[in-house]
């Protein structure tokens, strides 16, 4: 049951975090990725990032909040520590295994 609640709260946060990592300007500059071809959204992904944690607090489930926050710090670190190249390789493997297309946020000149 705990695993279910953790997944329900952490998955939306990690999706939002993935977007923020992928579109981070300094990260893109450091790895010579093309600049974003569109405006970077900040508020919606930030809201999606923190809302599940807020919901656990509002529900009075402090254990779930601590678990959500700690999972976010550990998985967030791993996600951020992987270079854009590493993400590209992971995406390619996932595509090969599942047949689904995993698109990265496109850059533009």
């Amino acid at each position: 049951m705990t695993l279910f609640f953790v997944l329900v709260t952490i998955v939306p946060s990690l999706i939002a975090l993935g977007y923020l990592i992928e579109t981070d300007p300094k990260r893109r500059r450091a790895f010579r990725e093309p600049a974003l071809g569109h405006e970077r959204y900040i508020v919606p992904p930030l809201a999606l990032l923190v809302l599940p944690g807020g919901a656990t607090l509002a529900a009075g489930t402090f254990g779930l909040f601590v678990l959500w926050f700690s999972t976010l710090t550990v998985v967030g670190w791993i996600m951020a520590a992987l270079s854009p190249d590493a993400w590209r390789r992971i995406g390619a493997r996932l595509e090969a295994w599942t047949g689904l297309a995993f698109r990265r946020v496109e850059g533009g000149r």
């Binding site: 705990t2 695993l3 953790v6 254990g63 779930l64 678990l67 550990v74 998985v75």
Partner: peptide
């Protein structure tokens, strides 16, 4: 506090 799941996360924190 969260059984195996929270322990696993704490191992990750210790490792980090």
């Amino acid at each position: 506090f969260g059984g195996f799941v929270s322990k696993l996360v704490w191992v990750g924190l210790g490792g980090a």
